[in-house]
Each structure stands twice: as structure tokens, then as C-alpha cells.
Simulated scan of single mutants.
Amino acid sequence: MTDAGVRDRSTAGPGLRERKRAAAKAHVAEVAIGLFFERGYGEVSITEICEVAGVARRSFFRYFATKEDALLEPIRAMADLFEGAIAGAPAELDDGAALDHALRALGVHVVEQWAWLEHYFRMIEETAALAAAPELQLAGRERAVAGELLRRRGETGAADWRLRLRVGCGIAAFRVWLDDMRAGAAVEPVAHLDRVLAALRAG
């Protein structure tokens, strides 16, 4: 392989070290959440997570600041998926269509993972230590999403109220759909999400 080929690979995505670290972090989070499901969040210690995951405590703390931080890793992964879908939306889509494109991508992910996500969301709600977690504060997430929409059109600065309102309404629509999923009211989940988003666009 040529030097140019090496450079192309290194700039196309995360390097090998970053990918290994991400995989190790995901493994520890997966083990932790599996133990939480099995025994209850409050009954699992960081030491036990490390023993089952086969990592040292210092390795755990390289990835996560606390046990709660490990529990929130799937939320961060979904946020990354959502914002990545906005960044990767077709260039011809306007802001509203790009947002809907990303919400649908997130919805498909949720449906595919629903067998365990249903239990995961319940555990999140029942964990008092997470009540003030920044990852669960939608206002901050809405600002990040609005910023991503600006970046995809090559703009900088703060989003105006119209864009923030559209993002807030889109996230609220997704939350309504998720509530229907949890209540068993979404017989065809992705089609139902399409209907919810279409209703939002119709005003």
C-alpha cells in the first residue's frame, strides 16, 4: 500500500487506536448494563463490572467517570447516531426534511433494538442518580441538533428561534412515538413514526 493510501485510510475515519478504545468502552458498557438487567442497578459495583468485563479498575475510569456514566452510554450512542444522520442527510433536503430523516434513522435503530431498549428505558427512569444527568436534558440536546443543522448548510453561529422551534417540535414528536412504542400502541412502529412526523409537518 502506498503512503497516500495510508493517509487516505487515516483521514477516512477514526484511527486504529481510537477504534480499539471505542470497542473496549462499548464492551465495558455492555457488560455493565447486562449486570444491571440481571441483578438491579443498585446491586452491582464497579469492581464487579471490571471482573466480568476483564478490565482493571483504572481502565474502567479511563472510559467512565462513574457507574451512572456507564449506564448512560447507549443514550450517548443514540445521540451520536441521530446527529450523524443529520450530518449525512442528502444535501438537497431542507432543515425540516433533514431532521425528519435523522429522526427516522433513530426510530429504525430503536425498533431494531427494542427487545432490550424497552427494559433499558425503564431502568433509566427508575435510577434516581440519573435525574439531573446532562444526557437526559432535552434542552441541551435540542441546541446541539440545531447546531448540526446549521453546520450541514455551512453556517456558524447560534440557531434562530424558528430552527430551535422546529427541532424542539421534532424531538417532542419522537417522544410521543416512543411513548406509543412503550405502551404497545405502535403496531407498525416505523410506519407509525412516519405518520407522526407527517402530522407534525402538516401543522
Rank of each mutant, 00 (worst) to 15 (best):
Thr2Pro: 08
Thr2Arg: 04
Thr2Tyr: 11
Ala4Pro: 06
Gly5Cys: 10
Val6Asn: 03
Asp8Leu: 14
Asp8Ser: 09
Thr11Ala: 15
Thr11Gln: 14
Ala12Met: 11
Ala12Gly: 11
Gly15Gln: 00
Leu16Glu: 12
Arg17Gln: 15
Arg19His: 11
Lys20Thr: 13
Arg21Thr: 15
Ala22Thr: 12
Ala23Tyr: 07
Ala24Ile: 10
Ala24Gly: 11
Val28Trp: 13
Ala29Lys: 06
Ala29Ser: 05
Ala29Leu: 03
Glu30Tyr: 07
Val31Gln: 00
Ile33Cys: 01
Leu35Thr: 06
Phe36Ala: 01
Glu38Leu: 12
Tyr41Ala: 03
Tyr41Asn: 01
Tyr41His: 13
Val44Ile: 15
Ile46Tyr: 13
Glu48Val: 13
Val52Phe: 08
Ala53Pro: 05
Val55Thr: 03
Ser59Phe: 12
Ser59Asp: 14
Arg62Lys: 06
Arg62Leu: 02
Tyr63Met: 00
Tyr63Leu: 00
Ala65Met: 12
Asp69Met: 05
Ala70Phe: 14
Ala70Ser: 07
Ala70Val: 04
Leu71Ser: 01
Ala77Trp: 04
Met78Leu: 13
Asp80Tyr: 14
Asp80Val: 06
Leu81Ser: 08
Leu81Gly: 05
Glu83Tyr: 09
Glu83Ala: 05
Ala85Trp: 01
Ala85Tyr: 03
Ala85Gly: 04
Ile86Cys: 04
Ile86Pro: 13
Ile86Glu: 13
Ala87Leu: 03
Ala87Asp: 02
Gly88Cys: 06
Glu92Cys: 10
Leu93Ile: 04
Asp95Thr: 03
Ala97Lys: 02
Asp100Pro: 04
Asp100Trp: 01
His101Cys: 00
Arg104Gln: 02
Ala105Thr: 12
Val108Gln: 13
Val108Leu: 15
Val110Tyr: 14
Val111Gly: 02
Val111Met: 07
Glu112Arg: 03
Gln113Ser: 14
Leu117Ser: 09
His119Asp: 00
Tyr120Leu: 00
Phe121Trp: 13
Phe121Val: 09
Arg122Met: 07
Met123Glu: 08
Met123Val: 08
Glu126Leu: 14
Thr127Asp: 12
Ala128Pro: 09
Ala129Glu: 14
Ala132Met: 12
Leu136Glu: 05
Gln137Asn: 15
Leu138Tyr: 07
Ala139Cys: 03
Glu142Cys: 02
Glu142Pro: 03
Glu142Trp: 03
Ala144Lys: 10
Gly147Trp: 08
Leu149Phe: 06
Leu149Ser: 05
Arg151Ile: 00
Arg153Met: 04
Gly154His: 00
Gly154Ala: 01
Glu155Gly: 04
Glu155Tyr: 05
Thr156Lys: 08
Ala158Leu: 15
Asp160Glu: 07
Trp161Leu: 13
Arg162Ile: 15
Arg162Gly: 12
Arg164Gln: 12
Gly168Asn: 06
Cys169Gln: 12
Gly170Ile: 07
Ile171Val: 13
Ala172Asn: 02
Phe174Ile: 06
Arg175Pro: 06
Leu178Lys: 08
Asp179Val: 14
Met181Gly: 02
Met181Thr: 05
Arg182Asp: 10
Arg182Phe: 09
Ala185Tyr: 14
Ala185Val: 08
Val187Ser: 11
Val187Trp: 12
Glu188Gln: 14
Glu188Ser: 09
Pro189Cys: 02
Val190Phe: 11
Val190Glu: 13
Ala191Val: 07
Asp194Pro: 05
Val196His: 01
Leu197Gln: 10
Ala202Phe: 15
Gly203Tyr: 05
